[in-house]
Design a binder for these strands. Sequence first.
RNA 1: GGGCCUAUAGCUCAGUUGGUUAGAGUGCUCGCUUGACAUGCGAGAGGUCACAAGUUCGAGUCUUGUUAGGCCCACCA
Length: 882
Amino acid sequence: MPASDLSTRTRYEPAEVEPEIVERWLASGAYETPPADPTNPDEETYSIAIPPPNVTGVLHMGHALNGSIQDSLIRLNRMRGKRTKWILGTDHAGIATQTQVEKKLAREGRSREELGREAFITETQAWRKEYGGKIIEQFKRIGASCDYSDERFTMDDGYVLAVQKVFIELFEQGLIYRDHYMVNWDPGSGSAISDLEVEEKEGVEDALYSIAYPFADGDGEIIVATVRPETMFGDVAVAVHPHDERYAGAIGRHVELPLSGGRTIPVIADTYVKMDFGSGALKITPGHDPNDFDIGRRHKLPAPSAIGEDGRMTELAGEFAGLTTDEAKTAVVDALKASGALRSEEPYVHTVPFSQRSGSRIEPLISLQWFMNMDELARPAIDAVTEGRVKIHPPVQSRRYIDWLKEIRPWCVSRQLWWGHQLPVYYRGDTENPTETYVGIEPPQGDGWTRDPDVMDTWFSSGLWPFATLGWPENHDDLADFYPTSVLSTARDILHLWVARMVMLGLRFGGDVPFRDVYIHSVIQAPDGRRMSKSLGTGIDPLDVINGGPRPPVFKQGGDFPAYGADAVRFGLLAISTTQDVRFSEDKVQQGQQLANKLFNATRFVLLQLEELGLGDIDAEPRPRTDADRWILSRLERVARQTAESLDGFEFAKASLGLYDFVYGDLCDWFVELAKPRLRSGDEDTQRDLAATLLYAIDKTLRIAHPVIPFVTEELWSHLPGDDRGLLVSASWPETDASAIDDAAEQRIKELINAVTVTRNWRETMNVKPSAILPARLREPLDDERVASLSALARLEFTDEPGERAVTLTTAGINIDLLPSEFIDLEAADKKKAAERERIETEIGRLNGKLSNAKFVERAPAAVVQVERDKLAALEEQLAAL
RNA sequence: GGGCCUAUAGCUCAGUUGGUUAGAGUGCUCGCUUGACAUGCGAGAGGUCACAAGUUCGAGUCUUGUUAGGCCCACCA
């Protein structure tokens, strides 16, 4: 049932139509993965696992772009008849979600600690039920044809089992282990976070302090520089470069640590130290600096903690214990000043790590965490890409992927959160130093066991996404059919964080690569080139563009967006999508809107014409009678192939802009215009065949355009005659038909179009009234079809009578003499003719020069030389005809 | 510090292995209620392809350098 009325509407109004079409698609079951065809063992499948949005998330431009990309691929392959599955779901997003819920509790005057773990998780589940579905509804609105009947969540029952199983197996294989290590401690969330969640802030102003450490034997001192004097209580050595002559005699001696009751530390030699920085002596604090931690391990030094996980000084700091780091810094500096150990204090600007999540300054701390050794997992993941079993597009991204994996470090997989997959780990005795550790799905027997309170890094569960969503480890049917998935489409920033880990874990547990192709799409920037961000006012909500919401401040123009509709947004995003980052372009969205409107009106025109001719129920089929018919069928065949090729090759801009060019440049501007006179010819056979061909052209165009602009095509499809048409979403992609390609017809219509354009151009520049019908004569005989078309489209009236000519329009293949008439200013025409003659002569001169260059004629390929000769001949002919 | 990418019309971008007079959309100017569409139709103006060398018969395209912008990695206490 159509949602709009073609006979009365002259504009396509997406906002009125699209929501209804969403319902139509959902109700039809077309999105759902069809059951396997038991009679066809060779049935092709196609699957994409959506990058699961955070449950906390709302749709942003990145989702809209990636949704459009994936949906165009899914719709194309569904139409091709493949058994298609677009796996949908959301990610529990540990820190992000926990933070949101804690904020909500804080607003209500409650806290996580007050509630306790169990109640907090119940609260979070409830929160998820209320808000977590929002983004799914938004995906429906943009036309994403995911299988909504099979929505997954990274914490649903089957998924939990998969996560635990992977953890346990890797533990049993010795790849997961517990260790002391330097982690990025985020005091804000009270958790360790990964390197990838750390944000480096540049230009932070601190002070660089120079402190004197006297030698223990009383003879001299060493000056060290630090921005963090409060960490000095964790110092275990002073390091110098082994070749630094200034300290040659110092190595092996001891210095006394100020403010530490006479504690002494050794001077060691390490090549890490830069001789030319500061004093050339570096204090080593393994407990609070990642580099120092490495140096400490090299020299087998202890790594005491001067700062605790609460962000306060430990007992090691003596009188400063209990102070926050900021308080301690002030106090320590004062004390050093008082004792005379502080030698200088200079302003110092440097880069400081902050937590992306909580915004707190990262405190590097030694902590007991769970780690995954990645070395053994990384090698196969590198091979998968170098051997082409996983292809990354654009290929330049493969290098980044491989470089990262080659230098991979152990992955800290534990997080001190409540919301997430709790580690299946139990301890007996002191949890820091247990007498027994048990790892397993079922809790261990006996008394005295305590479960590790930590949960896994969110990316641990995301890493299993492609196979855990397909039923691994229990159900293998979907896994067999849809794993490996066909394509993964995602943004560049999670190539390491997510993509690489999926490949590693997919190979290990899924038994194969998780996907054949990885497409890295553009990041969409604000129109001014800045990053899209709500806080900067540069964020653009795709739904505002679709439904006509307010323009954010980043636009020069204020006011609301027109309700462009989902098709327009999809088209616009695909049209700007490249392998580079791109700026959001409202113009391109508008272009998409115009395309939808154009298709609407072209279809409207054809259907109303057929109605008028009493051919309302004619079948759509190609019945070519003329070159124009053969031309459009040939063009349709080409655009069908080109669209499929472009989508298959991840060239989404080429696909969408190619559609636009075809609909405007071939179908509407020329074919429909060429058809008009014949529709009114009164010849019933002509009309009948043309009607069928027109309808066929519309039918095929709608199919081809559907993956990019599904809504308007579906709507128009419902207006086409035929009761058993069904929905376009379930219709078939046009089969390749080599016989439709007709180079000769394409050439002849190209000449016609060229002749019409040249004539129009001449008329405009000569100020000839558009309504004037000019008397004309053809220089050379031309087929009746093109004579009629030329006459109609260029407004000429041809005669065979001999006589004076006013001017000759020369084009490739067709030369037209315009005869003198009241519309033509002969003097102006002569001027124009002279200018044209000059242009051609210049060009001929240029070509003659080129062709008389012996080197060119000798060394250029014969074909290239011939092209130039042909060109010259054509120009000379044109000059003669003028 | 290391690596990568980009620079083409006022704006946003195409431009396949080097080979017609470098294209599109949009904006701008002019004309047109042309029997689907003014979200339309027709036409026009607008480019030293960032700069400088080089390779070549021929460079927007290849090489080197310079400049500007962006991204990634590692970061000096």
